[in-house]
C-alpha cells in the first residue's frame, strides 16, 4: 500500500487566512482542494510538501454566480457541482456538458475546477474549453487580485503563472452572446482525454459568421488555438474550408508517444476530433 509522508494540514476558514498561510509557507506548502491530482503525486513520491493548505473551508472559494455578463466559478467548486448547476446549464451549457464527462463520478465529486487549472496536468478537459470561451483566472495574493486569460495562466505541463504566495480564487467565464455556441468533443481511451477539441463560434444555419475559436487540448503541454480563418463566412459543408482547418489543427500539434498513443496516432486523432467538433457545433445531432 502506498503511504504518504507526514505533513501539517492547515484548514483556514476564510480566504484571508488562506492567503496569510500561503504568504508564510511559500513553496513549502501545497494548496489542497479535491486532492484528485495532488494526492496521487504525493502517493507516488513525485511531490513532497511539509504543509498542505486545505482551501475547501473558505466559503469565498465555492459556488457559481452570475456576475454582470459572466459566470464566476469559485476555485474550490467541484466538477460535480458544475455538472449539476442549473445556472451553468442555462448560461454555459457546453461547459456543463464537459463537466458531466470529466473522469468518473468519484473524481467529479472531489476534484475542483481551480485545482484542475492550477495543477496543469495536460491531459485535462476544462482548459481547452475555458480557453475557447475566453475565460479568465482570478488570482489573489499579497499584492491584491489580478486576472489572467486561461491561456496565459497555463504555461506548460504542470506549470502555471501562479505565484508561490498566490491562490486561484475563481474562474470567470464570459457568457457568449446570443447566436454564439460552444462545444467540446473528445476521445479518451483511458480515464483522461487523449485529444479534446473545444469550439466556440457564431453559427447561422450551417455557416460560421466569423472564424470560430478552435482549441486543441490534451495533445501538447498546453491548449493550442488553431487558425480557423478558412471557415470565416463559410458553411461547415464547405469541405475545402473544413479540411483546411482540420489540416491546420493536425499541423499545429506536436504530440509525443505516451500511454494514450503514438505521436502519429494522436496527430491523426487531432484532425478527426477537430472535424467532429466543427460539425457538432453546427449540427448537434452529428456523431461524436
Amino acid at each position: 500500500m502506498l503511504i504518504l509522508s507526514d505533513f501539517r494540514l492547515h484548514r483556514p476558514a476564510s480566504l484571508a487566512d488562506a492567503l496569510l498561510l500561503r504568504a508564510e509557507l511559500g513553496d513549502e506548502g501545497a494548496v489542497y482542494a479535491g486532492g484528485t491530482e495532488l494526492l496521487l503525486a504525493l502517493k507516488m513520491g513525485v511531490l513532497e510538501y511539509e504543509h498542505l493548505i486545505d482551501i475547501k473551508r473558505c466559503p469565498e472559494l465555492r459556488g457559481v454566480q452570475q456576475v454582470d455578463g459572466t459566470v464566476r466559478i469559485g476555485a474550490a467548486t467541484t466538477h460535480r457541482d458544475l455538472e449539476t448547476s442549473p445556472l451553468l446549464a442555462r448560461l454555459l451549457p457546453a461547459l456543463a456538458e464537459l463537466e458531466r464527462h470529466v473522469a468518473n463520478i468519484r473524481v467529479r465529486a472531489a476534484g475542483t475546477i481551480g485545482g484542475n487549472l492550477a495543477f496543469a496536468e495536460p491531459h485535462a478537459d476544462p482548459p481547452a474549453m475555458l480557453t475557447a470561451l475566453d475565460a479568465r483566472v482570478e488570482l489573489a495574493g499579497p499584492a491584491g487580485v489580478r486576472e489572467l486569460p486561461v491561456e496565459d495562466f497555463v504555461l506548460g505541463a504542470y506549470e502555471t503563472a501562479l505565484g508561490d504566495d498566490e491562490l486561484v480564487t475563481a474562474v470567470v467565464v464570459p457568457v457568449p452572446p446570443a447566436g454564439v455556441r460552444a462545444t467540446y468533443r473528445k476521445l479518451a481511451t483511458l480515464e483522461r482525454p487523449t485529444v479534446g477539441v473545444a469550439v466556440m463560434g457564431e453559427v447561422a444555419g450551417d455557416t460560421f459568421a466569423t472564424a470560430p475559436a478552435v482549441v486543441v487540448g490534451a495533445v501538447d503541454e498546453r491548449p493550442l488555438r488553431v487558425d480557423a480563418t478558412p471557415l470565416a463566412g463559410a458553411s461547415v459543408r464547405d469541405r475545402d474550408a473544413l479540411e483546411a482547418v482540420v489540416e491546420a489543427a493536425r499541423d499545429l500539434v506536436d504530440p509525443v508517444d505516451d500511454l494514450s498513443g503514438s505521436a502519429d496516432y494522436k496527430r491523426h486523432l487531432t484532425g478527426v476530433v477537430t472535424r467532429r467538433a466543427l460539425e457538432h457545433i453546427v449540427d448537434p445531432g452529428s456523431p461524436s
Partner: peptide, 17 residues
C-alpha cells in the same frame, strides 16, 4: 490506488469517492 477502478468506493456526504 489511483481513482480509476472503483473498488475502494465509499459514500462521503452521499456522493461516491
Amino acid at each position: 490506488e489511483m481513482e480509476v477502478c472503483g473498488a475502494c468506493t465509499v459514500q462521503l456526504d452521499g456522493l461516491p469517492v
